[in-house]
Design a protein around this nucleic acid. Structure first.
Lengths: 202, 202
DNA sequence: GACAATTACATACGGAACGTATGGGTGTTA
DNA sequence: TAACACCCATACGTTCCGTATGTAATTGTC
């Protein structure tokens, strides 16, 4: 009883991505031996080169998967906010919380940029920033945010601050306390975007 | 006529650092062959391992050198500002301008964090952030900046936004125009730190 | 339903890069 | 001047990557 071939192929691809994600997220991209983590998936480098071209190609696939997960989680959490500005703020803080996970930090914020270059140029992984930029331009149309700013540029800057925020929390020896400090400073920066001093949801 | 030995040693160290800096800044840390760039300095890997332990140790030395240069340049430029807040803003924008250089981008913002981990943990390279944090706390004492924020945390967040700002400018196909957009968005974020709407120097 | 052609992967090979162990040569010190 | 310490080069083994090749299984065609 043979399963259809498409499924077998998709399964090996998924196994390779999962094994690579595990290795990249723990020991890091450079330290991850292709022989080792392909073997842990019951395969060899032959399969890897066939499906992904090279090690970088596999990293791109891993990043695309993580990016999609992050975007889904962000939207899921933030969609419950009452106002659009609150939605936007929740989006940012959720992003920070996700970036606390070592796997995401390592792959998305360290090894990814080092190996693949500027994340803004990644063709397959811009979901989070795109969503943030969309909300920013909507907020501009509503007059909440100063309208002289370019949305995507602003989203990128916030993104950079977020990643630093996460790193600071993650490397702290008192994560609870520093988390409050970091989020406070972060929200303070965000308020610079507001066009007028107005009532702010807590 | 033999020079004293200390000078010879310092010279080989400097030559290794310079060669490594050139290689790391152009082709990147991972692609830089130790055999190649030591040979370009008229040396071999023996000298490298003797003085720096390993490739990472040499990268640390390169980073320390660049960090010192950056701190000197930032202070040099920003010290001419009339007000302390303006001084702080100039410090940030100068930082962004410096980060436009490919060598600094690559070594300080990409390969450095990927190889050595969170820059906040670097023992030898915190001059810029330290200076910014110092100015922030002074501004807090003067009532210009909201005093509920932790200075170093805030400086780190700004630092993250700065590096994204630089990357965006550097990778743009119209650097002049995007530079204006990026700096505008950046300054807008900074104004979130001000305790009250007050007269802002242009 | 046989046979050709393509696909999916494993295996084998060569080369590059790293780390260590070792050795030679030069300056310093007694 | 003789022993010593240090600076650096050389030699070697190992690990890892990329390509080239091989093989079994599947698909397409008549």
């Amino acid at each position: 009883m043979h399963r259809p071939r498409k499924e077998m192929i998709a399964e090996t691809r998924a196994k390779l991505i999962a094994a690579a994600r595990q290795a990249f997220g723990t020991i890091g991209y450079a330290q991850a031996s292709m022989d080792d983590f392909t073997a842990s998936a019951g395969l060899t480098r032959g399969a890897l080169y066939h499906h992904f071209g090279d090690k970088k190609g596999l990293l791109e696939a891993v990043i695309a998967e993580i990016d999609a997960e992050m975007a889904a989680r962000v939207n899921e959490v933030a969609s419950r906010a009452p106002t659009r500005w609150q939605h936007f703020v929740d989006e940012c803080t959720t992003y920070i919380e996700m970036a606390l996970e070592p796997e995401i930090q390592r792959i998305m914020f360290r090894d990814g940029p080092a190996v693949l270059g500027d994340p803004a140029q990644w063709s397959n992984a811009n979901a989070c920033v795109g969503s943030m930029a969309g909300h920013l331009s909507a907020l501009q149309r509503e007059g909440v945010v100063v309208d002289s700013l370019d949305p995507e540029t602003t989203a990128r800057l916030i993104n950079g601050a977020s990643s630093q925020a996460s790193q600071r929390i993650a490397n702290s020896n008192d994560p609870e306390a520093t988390s409050k400090m970091v989020v406070a400073a972060f929200k303070q920066l965000l308020e610079g975007l507001l066009s007028k001093p107005q009532s702010r949801p807590s």
